[in-house]
Nucleic acid binder design. Structure first.
Length: 106
DNA sequence: AGACTGACGATCC
DNA sequence: GGGATCGCCAGTC
């Protein structure tokens, strides 16, 4: 990606590498990914990269939610995609992280 | 250089 | 447990 490069490519690919390893029916939080990268305080950067993930290819970015289990704005299909994988939501449209959070990183 | 922004997270009500 | 607030940090203007 040339001018499409929004931010540091290495960071983006490191993030996407993790995202691509999330198994079906599981979700990760931005913070978990940031921590796995040794950048625990950079969760927002993870989110920024995700928002431009399409620049880098097709990744299961729908399996990434925030620490509340809330889905991403401007990505309404996310809930539908997750439900299709068997992920359950609570009444408040939050993923049930108790059951679906993937904690086998690294 | 400095202020503003955001697919976030921890804390504090 | 959910909303309000503050802290973070790279990118953008």
């Amino acid at each position: 990606m040339d001018i499409n490069r929004i931010m540091n490519d290495d960071l983006a690919y490191a993030i996407l590498a993790i995202v691509s390893e999330i198994p079906e029916g599981k979700v990760l939080t931005y913070g978990q990914i940031a921590k796995a990268l040794g950048r625990e305080k950079n969760a927002r950067l993870v989110g920024t990269v995700m928002s431009h993930a399409s620049y880098y290819g097709n990744y299961p970015c729908h399996r990434v939610v925030n620490h509340q289990g809330r889905t991403a704005p401007g990505f309404d299909r996310q809930k539908e995609l997750l439900e299709r994988e068997g992920v359950t939501f609570k009444e408040n449209d939050c993923v049930d992280l108790k059951k679906h959070r993937w904690d086998e990183i690294g």
